[in-house]
Computed example of a mutant assay.
Amino acid sequence: MTNSAHSVAGAILDDLDSRPGSATSLVRTVLGAYVRTLGGWFAIADFVVWMDALGVPSESTRIAVTRLKKKGVVESSIHRGRTGYRITEQADAMFSRGDGRIFGFRRMADGDPFRLISFTIPETQRAARHQLRRRLTGIGCGTVSPGLWIAPEYLADEAGAIIDALELSRYVTTFVTSEVAPPGTLRESAAQWWDLAGIADRHRAFLAACDAEVPVQDAREAFVTFAPLLDEWRVIPYVDPGLPPCMTPEDWPGTRAVATFEAARERCLEVSREWIDTTRVG
């Protein structure tokens, strides 16, 4: 991988690890959901105004942007005589891929196919093996055993891109199956292969933060309401692979969380983008 690819890959992992509601996490959310729709460029003064509306102090905003510059997510840029930042080409591609996940949550139906990922990586490639496991987890793959991973078939391309980027293709064999026959029940096995309890907690935290009944009075309020909810939500579609009903508990909170997010998005996203557009100077 090139240095820039390494940098952006690291930014993706940092993105998934960042705590929702933190300055860094909120800055990433605003970049991906709002700044990109304005062409990808922003003046730091404008960004400070947007983040101040979310309760983030200006110094924290500036520090977060500087960190993202070091990660290769943004770069210094002059636009119409104003000094500011622009989302890098690599980061724009990262955000674009994320849109499909964040705004288009997928869930398997019973009987849909899985992709099995088998690998044996030599000890000399231990660091790459660690990165592979971490990144597969980061896109929603489950662990059947240390050398055998499982994911919905619709994640096959993302998994393949990770394997190729780490230059580990010669150590990996994949299979497609629509039948899984574990020693216990499918629900018991799914709870072992994925952290279903942790995923359920993420959904419940989102539901606790989201009140879909609160009316939005204006564009600024739409932004203040929706940006934190999007920040809370956007990691969930990565950690939750969208397992079929036969593999999740009957009271699975993800079903309600997905519907709640979609309702909030419908009410707030486009309106909140109008506020961002009308408050920028450049």
Rank of each mutant, 00 (worst) to 15 (best):
A263H: 08
F103S: 02
D17W: 12
H6F: 04
S4V: 13
Q131S: 12
V49M: 01
S60Q: 15
V65C: 01
E266N: 00
P146F: 02
Q217S: 14
I44S: 00
A222P: 04
I236T: 07
R133W: 04
Q217Y: 07
R106F: 02
G104F: 10
E153N: 01
G10H: 07
R129E: 04
A197V: 09
T66A: 15
S189W: 01
G84Q: 01
T24R: 14
I44Y: 02
E232L: 08
T124K: 03
G111Q: 03
G254I: 00
A190M: 04
G111T: 01
S4W: 10
D14A: 07
G282L: 14
T2C: 07
W275E: 06
Y238D: 10
G55E: 05
G147C: 08
G147S: 15
A264S: 10
L13D: 15
S4L: 13
K69P: 00
A43G: 14
G72H: 13
T260P: 13
W252Q: 13
V258P: 07
A209M: 06
G142C: 05
A93S: 05
P245E: 15
G242N: 12
G98P: 00
R134G: 02
S58M: 06
D211P: 08
E123P: 08
T137N: 13
A5L: 14
A165C: 09
V172Q: 02
V65I: 15
S22T: 11
L207V: 02
A227G: 13
P183V: 13
E188H: 12
C210E: 12
G104S: 11
A43R: 11
G147P: 13
Y34T: 00
W194E: 00
R86S: 05
V176C: 00
A53T: 06
A91E: 05
A165D: 13
W193F: 10
A151Y: 07
D112T: 04
P245I: 03
R134N: 01
I117G: 05
A156L: 01
E167H: 08
R187D: 01
S189A: 15
A181T: 09
V73T: 01
R106C: 02
R82Y: 03
S145G: 06
F261N: 06
F105A: 13
P113A: 08
V281M: 11
R267F: 03
A165S: 15
